[in-house]
């Protein structure tokens, strides 16, 4: 029983990631509808969307190569791999040690790389535009992300995710401006990486503003389902990564099966709050011009750097 426990919990986490991600997106959409005075389709609509796409036939562009057909699987695989590494329900998952936070960022980078390639594969103007913009956003987000990671690892003396979560959980409660700055930077980066307003709008198909949607415009059927699903998981994972790094209280520690229900409830509550935050931000802000993203991510970099500086200067 004790042997099987880590495997069980790992399996449980993968299922939670797979099934929780559409639910979270559904929750966000529902809240948004409420806030904007529209009628919502309920939190389960994303499940229906995915299952509909999965049974639909595929229409492929004439010159789509194997890259185009392989990309959805690579994107989905890399994202799910990331999902099995982040401590979402338990800090001591067997797989958390396989990759630290830098490798985790690289896993998301694989997904992005293949999506961008798929965007270039058909040879339409939209696809190339999306790839170019996506890689621009990513290249600006990366230094900020590293700086934010640097700041958190200064506090925890580690880049291993479970160690980082442990340090914050068990450390004495102390006001740390560095962590606050890192958190703010992380929020900005997460918004940019998951393609939410004000950087990208996941609901738009207007050519001037599309980033992510432009790359995946030519997808259909199960390919589209996988890409959409991976996108939802990405939102879910960035939210839970933020939770694990900055608000880990409630995540189960070690081999205590009793902690799991508590951890689950805490997770649902925290993610619901994150969803609310996203909706508030998205309702309040308008999408920014594409070249304002430089300043947006520049501010993220600034905040993360201030976090690093204030660790040395003030703590």
């Amino acid at each position: 029983m004790m042997k099987a426990y880590p495997l069980l919990i790992e399996g449980l986490q993968v299922i939670i990631v797979l099934l929780g991600a559409p639910l979270m997106v559904g929750w966000v959409r529902m809240l948004k509808c409420w806030l904007q005075g529209r009628q919502s389709a309920g939190p389960f609509q994303p499940y229906r969307d995915i299952s509909k796409l999965l049974i639909k036939d595929i229409v492929l562009a004439e010159n789509a190569s194997w890259i185009f057909r392989f990309a959805p699987y690579a994107v989905f695989g890399a994202t799910l791999m990331a999902g099995s590494i982040i401590p979402i329900i338990s800090v001591d998952l067997p797989l958390t040690a396989t990759a630290d936070i830098i490798a985790l960022v690289a896993l998301f980078a694989i997904a992005r790389f293949f999506t961008a390639l798929a965007g270039m594969d058909i040879g339409t103007a939209f696809g190339g535009m999306g790839s170019s913009r996506e890689m621009m956003v990513a290249s600006l987000a990366e230094p900020a992300m590293l700086m934010s990671v640097f700041t958190v690892s200064l506090v925890s003396h580690s880049t291993s995710l479970s160690h980082m979560a442990h340090t914050v959980m068990e450390g004495t409660l102390m006001l740390r401006p560095s962590l606050a700055f890192a958190l703010m930077a992380f929020v900005l980066i997460a918004i940019a990486e998951t393609g939410r307003i004000p950087v990208d709008n996941p609901a738009t198909h207007l050519e001037l503003t599309m980033i992510h949607e432009a790359m995946v415009l030519e997808y259909s059927g199960r390919h589209l389902a996988l890409i959409e699903w991976a996108g939802m998981m990405k939102l879910f994972l960035f939210s839970s990564l933020g939770i694990a790094l900055f608000f880990p209280w409630g995540i189960a520690v070690a081999d205590e099966a009793m902690m799991l229900p508590v951890a689950l409830i805490a997770l649902v509550a925290k993610l619901a709050l994150v969803g609310l935050l996203i909706v508030l931000i998205e309702t309040r802000l308008a999408k920014m011009r594409i070249f304002r993203v430089t300043e947006f991510l520049g501010s993220a970099f600034l905040l993360a750097t201030l976090g690093m500086l204030s660790y040395f200067m003030l703590e």
Partner: peptide, 28 residues
């Protein structure tokens, strides 16, 4: 640490550069 940030920028730009190289030469 600022050097590390520059290196991260380099890595991300390298990814961008080779998306471009591969996408333009082999795809489309």
């Amino acid at each position: 640490p600022l050097g590390a940030a520059l290196l991260a920028l380099t890595a991300a730009l390298a990814a961008r550069c080779f998306v471009k190289a591969y996408g333009v030469v082999f795809l489309g």
